[in-house]
Amino acid sequence: MKRLTKTAIIFAVVTVLLLGASFAAEAVERSRFPEGGVYFARTDSYYSYSSRSLNPVISLICFDVKKGGALSLFDYHEIALVDTAGVSHKSKDVSISHVFTDIFFSRLVVRIVLDRTDFEDNTATYFQTVRLTDAHGKERDFSIGRICIEALNAEEEVASLSFGGYTTGANEMKSYNLRVTNQKEDLRLSRISLDLKGITYQASVYDEEGNVFPLDGYLLGKGTSVNIVLSFAGNTEVPFHFIKPCLVYERGGKVYAASVTGASDYISLFDREETVKYLWERADV
């Protein structure tokens, strides 16, 4: 019986030691992260909407650092985007998905649906702030970099162009490919509308034979398809970009615009070490 008592005591001690070690390991890892709470990644993004029937859907990358009982994203009740004029655009709908989660932090993608009728035709609205409201009605603003939403009116040109495929995402923001087919009469391509702060681009057209032409002034015949390639340059080091460009063209002396149907994401920050470093940079702001 004494041997059994000793055994029980040994296992009790082992339990306490292992628990202590686990909590110590947790504390060490937690100390690598900055102050707990919500961190929104800074983006340089552009969304165009040529149709009035589609509401803008904006993607934000959010990090939830679980430390010190800080409020997580899910503790907030409302989310809104604030434009540079100070107008708050409340979300019509929000969806949140986990990209990664453990006991130390979560990486989330927040998709905010805005109201298309809040945006005047042929104007660009810029957002630099997202506003969260907690259960007590207290508001807190977070910097999100720069997001441009451009509303375009293309009611007169329905289903003139069809987009056969486009770059949906990449790690590095080097290029963007778009396949376009003209469904109606001949048109002349004019430019790609893409308003990014630190990024410049050069647009080229590749015809079916692989010949390369400048985009501006390219004549796209009825029923023909081309590939448009954008080559990016400039500050491509920002790790988060979402783009939904718009193709501007002329037909019969009138200018029209057609937005690509979906947004593309250029996300280069994946590694845990890079994420911790990025969070510290964001915390220092």
């Binding site: 628990l19 686990s22 890892e29 989660t101």
Partner: peptide, 12 residues
């Protein structure tokens, strides 16, 4: 779900 949490949950 991560290497870091494997240590914590392994010990626990």
């Amino acid at each position: 779900t991560s290497i870091e949490t494997s240590l914590v949950f392994g010990l626990r």
